[in-house]
């Protein structure tokens, strides 16, 4: 593993006051994530792990503190700049797959590359490669509704990885999957982590994911409680 820092989170605080009663979701989180990590952010519900993931992914902004990704402080970017940033830097895997239901597996995987204006030949080759890598080479033309939950999540992983982002953020990726689908998905992600050197950051409280992570960051009450390497 190289020592290149991909994500640098410095003293991030996040306070929600949507309900007029301020809720401190993060209270000074500091964290470095290096290239090629396979890291799980764990903690009980309400601990702040999803908030941290959203802030790292540029979906939310810290109240104070900074998040630097590949040397760029993303907390200073405008909403439109953040959209562009996410498009080119981050692959997302969501808990409930969130594929585009009207597109086939192939089109879903191709989608972000299309937004990035990758030329057709490269796009086609990469789409095929990723779908084969997640074991869905034969289901390319199926729509999400024609796939099982596990298969849909594998398409989501292929979609996240296809444009070769700086890192993958996966929010509870196995929460809706059965044991064999979970094991299968973790195998695929671990393999892609090894083969492509892709950085993976999960938020999870699924022990099966935690067991496979090489680094486990435990968050509780908005603070990093433990940071273990395995």
């Amino acid at each position: 593993m190289t020592e290149e820092i991909v994500i640098k989170v410095s003293d991030v605080h996040k306070t929600y006051d949507e309900t007029k009663v301020p809720v401190k979701a993060l209270r000074g989180v500091t964290l470095d994530i290096k290239k090629g990590e396979f890291t799980a952010i764990v903690g009980p519900s309400g601990s702040g792990k999803t908030t941290l993931l959203n802030i790292i992914g540029g979906l939310d902004r810290p109240t104070t503190g900074s998040v630097v990704v590949n040397g760029m402080d993303i907390s200073t970017l405008s909403d439109n700049q953040l959209i562009d940033f996410r498009k080119t830097n981050i692959g997302f895997v969501f808990q409930s797959y969130n594929l585009i239901p009207v597109l086939t597996a192939r089109e879903n995987v191709e989608f972000v590359m299309l937004l990035q204006k990758v030329d057709k030949a490269k796009r086609d080759a990469r789409t095929k490669e990723m779908l084969q890598a997640v074991g869905l080479g034969d289901r390319m033309h199926n729509k999400p509704t024609e796939l099982s939950g596990g298969q849909q999540q594998r398409v989501a992983v292929a979609r996240a990885l296809a444009p070769k982002p700086s890192f993958i953020l996966a929010d509870e990726p196995t929460a809706n999957l059965d044991s064999s689908s979970t094991a299968n998905l973790l195998d695929i992600m671990a393999q892609l982590n090894q083969e492509e050197g892709m950085t993976f950051v999960f938020s999870t409280h699924d022990q099966r994911v935690i067991d496979r992570a090489r680094r486990v960051v435990t968050i509780e009450d908005g603070k990093v409680l433990k940071d273990e390497w395995r």
Binding site: L59, D84, R86, N98, L115
Partner: peptide
């Protein structure tokens, strides 16, 4: 709503 949120999360800009 969620699908539109996902499209914007993965980089589909507001114009699109």
């Amino acid at each position: 709503v969620r699908e539109l949120g996902m499209l914007m999360a993965v980089g589909m800009n507001r114009v699109r």
